[in-house]
Amino acid sequence: MRNRLPFLSLSSYGVGWSVNRRIAMVTCVVAVLLAIAGIVAVVTGGGSGHQAAGTDASAPADSSPSSSEAAPEPSSGSGSVPKPPQIAEPVAYAKAAAQMLWSYDTRDTSRDQQLAGMRAWMATETKYADWASVSGQVPDPVLWSRMSDQDQHATAHVTEGHYPSAFKQALADDPSAITEAYIYVVTVNGTQQIAWKKGGSGAEERAVTLAVQCRPSHDCTLAAIAPSVTQ
Rank of each mutant, 00 (worst) to 15 (best):
D140A: 14
D62G: 08
V26Y: 11
S68I: 07
A98R: 04
F167K: 09
V43P: 14
A226Q: 00
W17F: 04
G161W: 04
P84N: 09
T209H: 09
M122P: 03
V208F: 01
E204P: 00
D105F: 08
C28D: 13
D62V: 12
S133N: 05
A37C: 06
T230D: 06
H153C: 05
A224F: 04
I183C: 15
V42C: 05
L115T: 07
Q137M: 13
L210C: 02
A70N: 13
T126A: 11
P141E: 00
V81Q: 11
M25K: 07
A35P: 00
V40D: 10
L115P: 07
A70L: 13
Q192S: 13
T155I: 09
I23C: 03
S11Q: 09
S11L: 05
A71G: 08
G47Q: 04
N3C: 06
H162T: 10
A35S: 14
S176A: 15
P141A: 03
S165N: 14
K168G: 07
K83A: 15
G161T: 06
G161D: 06
S110G: 10
M100R: 13
A92N: 09
I23S: 13
A98W: 03
P227H: 03
L34F: 06
A166P: 02
E125N: 15
R4I: 01
N3L: 13
S103F: 11
A71F: 12
T187W: 01
K168C: 02
R107Q: 14
D108P: 00
S217V: 13
P90F: 09
A53K: 05
A37P: 00
T221R: 15
I194L: 12
M147L: 08
V188G: 09
D174P: 00
S12R: 14
A172I: 06
T124H: 12
R206G: 06
D151I: 01
M118I: 15
I183A: 12
S148M: 09
E125R: 15
P141C: 04
L5C: 01
D130Y: 08
F7Y: 15
D56A: 12
V229C: 00
S75D: 12
Q137A: 10
A57T: 11
A223M: 04
V188Q: 11
Q150F: 11
A181T: 11
A31T: 07
S67L: 08
G190V: 05
R107N: 09
P139D: 02
Y184N: 14
P6L: 00
Q137Y: 02
V43E: 14
D108L: 06
V32T: 09
P84R: 10
S76F: 04
T187D: 05
Q150H: 12
T109M: 03
K198F: 06
A61V: 10
P90V: 05
K197P: 01
A170L: 03
G136A: 09
I225Q: 10
